[in-house]
């Protein structure tokens, strides 16, 4: 069971996660219009920028975040932005979309000039997230947990970050037990996706370099 405080925290996080998303007209553009490779690139960078902006808005609402050292706030966001972006994008491929939409989206990403070497692990991740059928609560919590990773580079006060992350982990563990009573490994699987995300983050840095070059 969740305590009353945990319920409040969870509802607040989910509301904030749902409220802060990429503007719909931008997401629509991705599905409706035909672009060449260069326009694909521009649209995807515009979306990435928007992703980061909404991520910051969501993060500001995480209880206690704005009380952290200002440079630590930046270090946490910088270290997690790409991972949070992949987590959010995975939702697009998880949710039921009108027929053909996810194929169109996949096609556009594949034709954006990014090499297959990076695309394949990305879609593998989207598939592995899809298999977990994550709830909104799990999405929001996992995103907050990713952001509040104390071991990010340049974080000075790791303990302060840990104090914010621990209650989130506890709520996530309880949510998993409540909603997946017959899958005791569900919580561990969710955390396992965070390890996968770190690998993607690493690939992403290399991918950007190759993308810029091409």
């Amino acid at each position: 069971e969740l305590t009353r405080e945990q319920h409040t925290l969870l509802n607040f996080l989910v509301d904030s996660y749902n409220k802060h998303r990429i503007p719909q007209d931008m997401a629509k553009k991705l599905l409706q219009e035909q672009f060449n490779a260069e326009e694909n690139f521009l649209l995807l960078t515009e979306m990435a920028t928007s992703h980061v902006q909404v991520l910051v808005e969501f993060t500001k609402n995480i209880p206690g975040f704005l009380g952290l050292d200002h440079e630590d706030q930046i270090a946490l966001l910088k270290g997690s932005a790409v991972e949070a972006m992949f987590l959010r994008s995975a939702q697009v491929f998880t949710r039921k979309m009108p027929s053909g939409h996810s194929e169109l989206l996949e096609d556009r990403i594949r034709k954006s000039g990014i090499s297959d070497e990076f695309i394949t692990p990305m879609f593998n991740f989207y598939n592995s997230i899809g298999q977990l059928h994550m709830l909104q609560e799990e999405q929001a919590l996992l995103t907050a947990i990713t952001i509040l990773t104390p071991e990010r580079p340049y974080v000075k006060d790791q303990q302060a970050v840990e104090r914010l992350q621990d209650p989130m982990l506890d709520v996530l563990r309880r949510i998993c037990a409540l909603h997946h009573p017959h899958q005791p490994q569900h919580f561990a699987r969710l955390l396992g996706r965070l390890t996968e995300l770190r690998t993607l983050n690493h690939h992403h840095a290399e991918m950007l370099t190759s993308w810029r070059t091409s």
């Binding site: 980061v52 902006q53 500001k60 930046i74």
Partner: peptide, 21 residues
Amino acid sequence: PANNLGLEDIIRKALMGNLED
């Protein structure tokens, strides 16, 4: 344009928005 900003710039700007609020 935002496209030309680095990740850290985008984060700093977005966080500053809060301070101005």
